[in-house]
Design a protein around this nucleic acid. Structure first.
Lengths: 341, 341
DNA sequence: AGTTACAATGAAAGCGCTTCCATTACTTTC
DNA sequence: GAAAGTAATGGAAGCGCTTTCATTGTAACT
């Protein structure tokens, strides 16, 4: 166990290398490499001897060296806007679970809903030569696109739908969500319609779908608040106050997330509205608390975790060389009708 | 722009290398390396020429090669139980923000509150030779400890307090939280005391502090539910139903998280309890919704994001070679007295 | 004018792996 | 019993960088 310094530049606390293992096990480095990566090519007896030495020395292979040599890093990068929002957190959990079980690791980037930051992250990530990359949304800077396509690795865009993804997309049409919600409210019939929401690209799509479906039927009111994404309980509450202040008549409201809807609901409650007779609220996301508000929140349900799972599966297939992954993988959504609409 | 195949084993779509840049800019590879890493050592004019070539070719440095050669990866790994819980999500956001601004990247591992998984993750992470590692909590398998200390890199343990961390810890005493909550409830005086909670090590510590403080004063009731960590709204609701079912007299309850508290509150409301006269509830975490429940939730506030920020700062200092980071960095907590206690 | 410093650059070696191409020792097969 | 596998192993080269140690030219001092 003596640390015989060779001509090492940096004689740190013995970083055991594959060569060390080879020497101790009295085999060549190649054999050790095979013992680790393709054990079926090595005689069981040799394998065991090597395993013993590895255990004894506490050898941890250097994946930087391995990746450099093999051009495969077993790293998958994902860029999401934020992890503090339930929305993406669960997608990441799904993604991670699937990747880990396939022996991959997740490199996470948080873009903060900022395309410029997404570009910088992409560059930083590509420098680590991941085997694949997952992006949130389908709108990217053209530099990002160029860099990505130039890198020639599998790409999966998530949480949105498009006929022409960079490579493959896993998600759904936010426009269609907006339309569906409009129709749900329309079926009940209200005097006024409104949308409260954040301004991230996907929330905007949902709003557009909502507004378009109601075009010619009603002017959708859009309370003006400087909401950033993601928007909060307080945003929802303030927006609802504004709406109730501004007029009368029954009101159907589509919120960009359950959190916002929760805030809106609280304000409505506070002002004594009858729900859903006078005021209907539909959220988005079906968060944990949605069944437990008063009344329970009607919302749009998406399997957030499933997006992660499917994205991981798609990218793993692509890495394995499969050509038939398809351009667009759709994920279901539907309205969960509870008490608020 | 022709792809002149050299004797490349893998003639993929032109991965531009530093050597390519050097050739095109008519300088040696070392100079390009310096232009990227230590630009102040390069003549402005040369710098510019190199920058032009880099921009034109879309060169992205290979950090695997760089890391292998320099033994610095600019990677920091963090292992947290989950990212789906608000608790850790915000810590990660803080961590990430701080790391990114220092030019580091975050490699995330999710342990799912499982120490065995933590061990495997640690091994997988160490294989990527991060410059530092952040772990959640202070209880680890002894193999994990051995591997970690053997790796000889800066370590920061977060979300807990200990006099003897592996290296440095950033957090607070969960035991003290439990004591504080007990005293808060004690001051108001209730007939019965209970705790509803998850079974992760930190929640258990909080419970122990709570129970210990009340020892000799009251027997703390612990509704038996098979709650995993993290526990949910429904868990809280069910536990509260059990408590209310089981006896009478005024009741002071400490919940292991605001989510659980929210569920408990909902049930209490449903059963028509007067809050906080007959029934007091204290949560943990001061989540977004806490000020907006009915009545607003009294809870324990911790700056979750700050834990991430401080952890990042500590590890960066250590990487920079600072010795005076200290073993324990404490983060404040306090009770936010709202309507439920 | 001669020494000394510093700024700017390069040559060579090597980080720790994996890949390709042998090589050796056995089994099969006809 | 020779030809043709197949299983198990090793040698050498190289992945794309950074590091150390020179080397050059030019500015700064006596």
């Amino acid at each position: 166990m003596t640390g015989h310094d060779k001509n090492r530049r940096n004689p740190t606390n013995g970083p055991v290398t594959l060569a060390d293992i080879a020497r101790l096990a009295d085999v060549s480095p190649v054999t050790v490499s095979r013992a680790i990566n393709t054990p079926n090519l090595v005689k069981p007896q040799t394998l065991e001897a090597i395993a013993r030495v590895i255990a004894r020395t506490g050898y941890v292979p250097n994946l930087l060296a391995g990746g450099l040599a093999s051009r495969r890093t077993r790293l998958i990068a994902a860029i999401v806007p934020s992890v503090a929002s339930t929305i993406f957190a669960e997608t990441i959990e799904g993604l991670n679970a699937e990747l880990v079980s396939a022996g991959y690791q997740l490199l996470l980037g948080l873009s903060g809903y900022d395309l410029q930051r997404e570009l910088e992250l992409t560059r930083a990530i590509l420098a680590r030569r991941p085997d694949g990359i997952i992006l949130t949304g389908i709108s990217h800077l053209k530099e990002t696109r160029a860099m990505l396509t130039g890198a020639g690795l599998p790409i999966v865009e998530i949480w949105d739908s498009t006929p022409s993804p960079l490579d493959t997309a896993v998600g759904f049409s936010h426009l269609a969500v907006g339309v569906l919600v409009a129709e749900h409210l329309l079926a009940k019939g209200y005097d006024r319609y409104a949308q409260i929401g954040a301004n991230d690209p996907r929330a905007v799509q949902r709003r557009d779908g909502f507004v378009n479906r109601l075009a010619g039927i009603a002017e959708v009111e859009l309370p003006a608040l400087d909401m950033n994404s993601p928007s909060t309980f307080s945003d929802g509450r303030a927006a609802m106050a504004q709406l109730l202040d501004r007029g009368h008549g029954t009101l159907g409201v589509f919120c960009s997330s359950d959190v916002v809807a929760h805030g809106a609901l609280a304000e409505a409650h506070f002002q004594g509205c009858r729900i859903p007779e006078d005021l209907a609220i539909i959220g988005f996301g079906d968060f944990d608390f949605a069944p437990h508000t008063h009344p329970p929140l009607t919302t749009v349900r998406i399997d957030r975790r499933d997006i992660g799972t499917k994205a991981a599966q798609s990218i793993l297939k692509k890495i394995a060389g499969s050509e038939d992954v398809g351009a667009m993988i759709n994920v279901d959504f539907h309205i969960v009708a509870r008490g608020t609409a």
